[in-house]
């Protein structure tokens, strides 16, 4: 019985090492490998973008960004994100809500469909829209008759971006909502809340951090998408160039400072996204599990 009366600390010290406690040299080796890999393949290239942009000082960077074509690309990218992200946030919440809180025939098929944009190459996604709305496409002649431009214009770019970035919000929310179950919604119903009241007062607050994170990722991808947008944009300078497309054009014209300047701006977006994510996690350590503040207010 002596073992049971030992203070916990002494008992722990006497206990054999727990499973998963590897020797120090193994841990050091694995850690070095991981840090080295991240440094070499993730951090160094990102740093190189800024080095490349600032190689001749800040002045040329600002000059490159102030070019009308650059400004137009920045404006178009912001417009695309401003439309695609809210649309995908709304539909992502709807899809996750339907999948996680309800059961209906064809649910498994719907989950597969949500993943489709991830499994299809963005170039193919772009081609799909050309096939549908292009001049030779299904609606092509009708659209040109009515003077509506979708392909090689902003609407096509927005459609392609929505397609490519659709899964981010839904994929973030589905596991979260499934884990939370329907208990709180049922409790709200027995307390007299309507479906809409339940959604706004109970469901939404519980998913707010997951939604926020999904929107961040969705936005990063919406601004950075190249492949699908490249196919439908037509690369008309000052009109249908987004930032990633503009980077490629400048680079192909040997305007390295210009290319790296626009690229740096895109990278800055990634950095801001990561910083926001880190901030959220610092404020809310269990933010993926729940929306409850740790301390009473």
């Amino acid at each position: 019985m002596a073992g049971l009366t030992l203070p916990p600390r002494a008992a722990a010290a006497a206990a054999p090492p727990a499973v998963g406690q590897d020797p120090p040299w193994v841990r050091a080796l694995v850690l070095t490998a991981v840090v080295g890999f991240i440094g070499l393949f993730l951090f160094a290239p990102l740093a190189m973008v800024f080095v490349g942009a600032l190689s001749k000082g800040v002045g040329p960077v600002l000059h490159a960004l102030a070019q009308p074509d650059s400004l137009s690309a920045i404006g178009l990218t912001l417009l695309v994100a401003a439309i695609a992200v809210p649309v995908n946030a709304v539909f992502g919440v709807c899809a996750a809500w339907a999948v996680a809180k309800h059961s209906f025939p064809g649910k498994a098929f719907l989950i597969t469909l949500i993943d489709l944009p991830f499994s299809v190459s963005p170039v193919v996604a772009g081609l799909i829209f050309v096939l549908i709305f292009g001049l030779q496409g299904w609606f092509g002649s009708w659209l040109s008759d009515h003077d509506v431009k979708i392909i090689f214009a902003a609407p096509g770019i927005i459609l392609a971006t929505i397609f490519v970035t659709f899964p981010f919000v839904a994929r973030e929310l589905i596991p979260l909502m499934q884990a939370q179950g329907v208990d709180e919604e049922e409790a709200a119903a027995t307390l007299g809340a309507t479906g809409l009241q339940t959604f706004w007062r109970v469901t939404t607050p519980n998913i707010r951090w997951g939604l926020f994170y999904g929107v961040l990722l969705c936005n990063a991808r919406a601004m950075g998408e190249f492949g699908a947008v490249s196919v439908v944009s037509g690369h008309i300078r000052g009109q249908t160039d987004t930032m990633p497309l503009h980077v490629e054009i400048l680079y192909n014209e040997y305007d390295f400072v210009g290319a790296f300047s626009v690229a740096a701006l895109l990278c800055l977006l990634a950095v801001v996204t990561l910083a926001l994510k880190a901030l959220v996690e610092a404020l809310e350590p269990q933010f993926l599990e729940s929306g409850a503040p740790r301390h009473g207010v």
Partner: peptide, 19 residues
């Protein structure tokens, strides 16, 4: 509907609104 019945329901895991 549950919301029209005016019942008080205490769930096994309480189902309190965490937020």
């Amino acid at each position: 509907k549950a919301s029209d019945r005016r019942v008080g329901f205490v769930f096994q895991q309480y189902a309190l609104f965490k937020h």
